[in-house]
Design a protein around this nucleic acid. Sequence first.
DNA 1: TTGTGTTTTATTGCCTCC
DNA 2: GGAGGCAATAAAACACAA
Length: 340
Amino acid sequence: MDPGRVVFDSGVPRRACGGGAQMLLFGRGGSANSSGFFRGVPATVLGMEESRSSSAAGGKRPFFTTHEELLEEEYYDEQAPEKKRRLTAEQVQMLERSFEEENKLEPERKTELARRLGMAPRQVAVWFQNRRARWKTKQLEHDFDRLKAAYDALAADHHGLLSDNDRLRAQVISLTEKLQDKETSPSSVTITTAVQEVDQPDEHTEAASTTGFATVNDAFAATPPGHQQQQPPKDDHLSSSGTHDGGAAVVVFDVTEGANDHLSCESAYFADAAEAYERDCAGHYALSSEEEDGGAVSDEGCSFDLPDDATMFGAAGVVHHHDTADEEAQLGSWTAWFWS
DNA sequence: TTGTGTTTTATTGCCTCC
DNA sequence: GGAGGCAATAAAACACAA
């Protein structure tokens, strides 16, 4: 129990009445006498006007009143238990202004504020203590709101990425199925495809993230079992492709038969994270034949520009066969996935 | 008027710093 | 060991709906 604190049977702390004047009892060794705030309070104490008027009206009373009123309240001391009184609006206003300047209270500032407001220094300190607690609570609420907004945005973004991933997976599956259908149909040309799982980038594709088109090699290296392994693009294909920005992907077809035939890549199908669209790549492809070597293999290339913002994309094309009579037939399709 | 929830003022106990 | 800060809490004051 603090010295100077009087607790009646009810356990409610009461005002100590020694001296007759209003006396509040403070803990931590600070008796009302030692604080001395209610003796010699300046006539300019804030809230006096309100105190008088409200007291006269029998309404709210501010905590501090004039010395005379304090003396008058001897009557209350004998008749009524202590009432906790609120600070006046002016006192709170000045305390708020002081808090805005600095939320910690040096002893000199505390004394000066107490003098100007007609409050006990201890009371000023308590007010600052409580004010800091309220500020901290508000700050926590603000931080919570901010973090929650950030979390919600991230969650929405994550959901969008999952949707994109699902969509791209479906495209891979669809294109793969189309490819397999084509492969099972009779053809004089075998189109080897390269398909990589979208959600399982291997170390090659990871390493390719900075170079972009090295993934073409990886894509072809990932030729499914049972397919003829394709040769990676020629060096100059890769080197001329350069970096992703403004570059072009190169897809090389492996033609096992019909070397005399002309092949054309009718279109390339792009699907990056944001959109899927077709792009005509006619005019970009370059055909070459190694028929003279007597071999049945020739490297055929089809190049196409990449979307500037593509980070992962798929490309698919249809290969046409042109015979000498200019009869055209669709021979197959190809797909490839790249990361850049 | 009354019940109830919120805010404000003040106390208590513990901790840290000098 | 004293001063001061903080968290937890008490209790009065206040706001407001029924």
